[in-house]
Lab assay of single mutants.
Amino acid sequence: DVEEQIRRLEEVLKKNQPVTWNGTTYTDPNEIKKVIEELRK
């Protein structure tokens, strides 16, 4: 469920934690926001 994935990513973003997505770890909040934007398409 895309909405659920977006919610999880936004939670991690608020906590300033790194996100691992498709084998890539993102630590930059701007990169995480880009992943969220991609999911919304």
Score class of each variant (00 low, 15 high):
E37R: 05
P29C: 06
T24C: 07
D1E: 12
L39H: 02
Q17S: 09
I32K: 00
L39F: 03
R7D: 04
N16L: 06
T27H: 09
L13A: 08
P29T: 07
V19K: 01
Y26M: 10
I32M: 03
R40M: 08
G23S: 02
E11T: 05
T20F: 15
K14I: 11
Q17D: 09
K41P: 02
R40F: 04
G23R: 00
I36K: 00
E3H: 11
E11Q: 07
K34W: 08
N22I: 02
L9P: 00
L39A: 02
K41D: 06
Q5I: 15
I6S: 01
D1V: 09
T25K: 03
E10H: 05
I32T: 02
K33Y: 10
E38T: 10
K15I: 06
E37I: 08
K34F: 07
E10I: 09
V2P: 06
T25W: 08
I32W: 02
Y26L: 14
E10F: 05
D28F: 01
K14A: 14
G23F: 02
K34A: 13
K15D: 10
V12E: 12
E37T: 07
E37W: 03
V12S: 15
L13G: 02
V35S: 01
R8I: 14
V19A: 08
N30P: 03
D1T: 15
I6M: 04
W21S: 12
W21T: 10
E4T: 10
I36F: 04
N22Q: 13
L39W: 03
R7H: 08
N22V: 02
E38G: 08
T25E: 10
T24K: 11
E38D: 06
N22W: 13
K15H: 13
T27N: 11
L39S: 01
V35D: 01
T27L: 06
E3P: 06
Q5E: 08
T20R: 10
P18R: 04
D28K: 02
E4N: 13
L13P: 01
E10S: 05
V12A: 15
K15Y: 11
K41M: 11
E3Y: 15
K15L: 14
E3G: 12
N16H: 12
L39M: 13
N22M: 09
T20I: 15
P29W: 07
K14F: 10
E11D: 11
I32V: 07
T27W: 12
E31A: 06
K41F: 06
N30K: 08
V35F: 07
T20Y: 15
V12H: 15
P18Y: 06
E4P: 03
D1P: 12
E11N: 05
T25H: 06
N16W: 11
Y26D: 01
D28E: 09
T24Q: 12
L39V: 03
E10Q: 09
V2L: 14
E31T: 03
E4Y: 11
Q17F: 15
N16I: 03
K14R: 14
R7Y: 04
N30F: 12
I6G: 01
W21H: 15
T24Y: 09
Q17P: 05
N16S: 08
E38Q: 12
L39T: 01
P18V: 10
E4A: 13
T27E: 10
E10R: 04
V2I: 14
E3N: 12
T24L: 13
Q17I: 11
K33P: 01
K33T: 08
L13W: 05
T27K: 05
R7E: 07
